Lab assay of single mutants.
Amino acid sequence: NQASVVANQLIPINTALALVMMRSEVVTPVGIPAEDIPRLVSMQVNRAVPLGTTLMPDMVKGYA
């Protein structure tokens, strides 16, 4: 199964993503693939992302 990017902490709106904020986990539904974690670093989220939430492409500015 494909691992997705999951929030490792609460990520406030407009926060630039850092490695420590993300982990990979096999979840349903599938979100952003875990292999894209390096690409996500320094991109901003466009909403608050609670701990344990799967990151979806529409949550990250400039990802989709």
Rank of each mutant, 00 (worst) to 15 (best):
S24W: 11
R47I: 13
V5R: 00
V49I: 15
A18V: 12
T28F: 11
N14W: 15
T28D: 15
P33I: 14
A34W: 07
Q2F: 14
G52F: 04
G31E: 00
R39V: 10
A34F: 06
G62N: 11
P29S: 03
V6H: 02
V26L: 11
V41H: 04
A18H: 08
V49S: 02
L51F: 15
L10S: 14
A34Y: 12
I13E: 12
Q44A: 13
A3E: 14
V49A: 04
L40S: 01
E35W: 09
G62K: 06
S24C: 07
S4Q: 01
L10Y: 14
N8C: 05
E25G: 11
A7N: 01
P12S: 07
M21K: 02
V26R: 05
P38L: 13
M22L: 13
S42M: 10
M59S: 06
I11N: 01
I37Y: 03
S42L: 10
L19N: 05
Q44F: 14
R23K: 08
R39H: 08
L51V: 15
E25K: 11
L55V: 11
V20C: 14
P38A: 11
L10C: 15
R47H: 08
G62M: 10
G62S: 11
S42T: 13
V30P: 15
L51C: 08
L55G: 01
M43Y: 12
V26W: 12
M21A: 04
P33D: 06
M56T: 14
I11K: 00
T15A: 11
N46C: 08
R47P: 02
L17K: 00
V41G: 02
V26Q: 10
A18D: 06
S42E: 09
S4I: 02
N8Q: 09
T28M: 09
I32W: 02
S24D: 09
N14I: 03
A18W: 05
V6C: 04
T28C: 11
R47Q: 10
N8K: 09
V27L: 05
V41C: 06
T15M: 09
I32T: 02
P57I: 05
R39Y: 07
G62D: 08
N8L: 06
N14R: 07
I32Q: 00
S4K: 01
L40R: 00
V5C: 10
A3W: 13
P12N: 07
I37Q: 04
A16M: 13
V27K: 08
L17V: 02
E25T: 08
Q2S: 13
V30Y: 15
T15E: 07
D58R: 07
G52H: 08
L55M: 10
P57H: 11
P38M: 10
M59I: 05
R47G: 04
N8W: 04
M22Q: 00
N8F: 04
L55I: 15
Q9F: 07
L17Y: 00
Y63G: 03
V26S: 10
P12L: 09
I13H: 11
L10T: 09
G62Y: 15
L55S: 02
I32L: 05
A16V: 13
Q2L: 14
V26P: 08
K61N: 15
L19I: 10
S4Y: 03
K61F: 11
A7S: 10
T54Y: 02
E25H: 09
K61R: 15
Q9C: 06
M59A: 07
P38E: 09
V26I: 13
K61W: 13
A48I: 14
N8S: 13
M22V: 06
V41Y: 05
G52L: 04
N8D: 14
N1L: 15
N46K: 12
I11Q: 01
T15K: 05
G31Y: 02
V30I: 15
V5D: 01
T15G: 05
N1C: 07
E25L: 10
T15Y: 14
T15N: 04
Y63M: 05
D36M: 12
G62L: 11
E35Q: 13
V49E: 02
Y63W: 13
R39I: 08
E25Y: 07
V60L: 09
P33H: 12
G31P: 00
L51Q: 15
A16E: 08
T54Q: 03
T28N: 11
N14V: 03
R39E: 05
T53I: 10
V6E: 01
A16D: 05
P12M: 11
D58Q: 10
S4V: 02
T15P: 01
T54R: 03
A16I: 15
T53Q: 14
V27M: 06
G31T: 01
G31K: 02
T28R: 04
V26H: 10
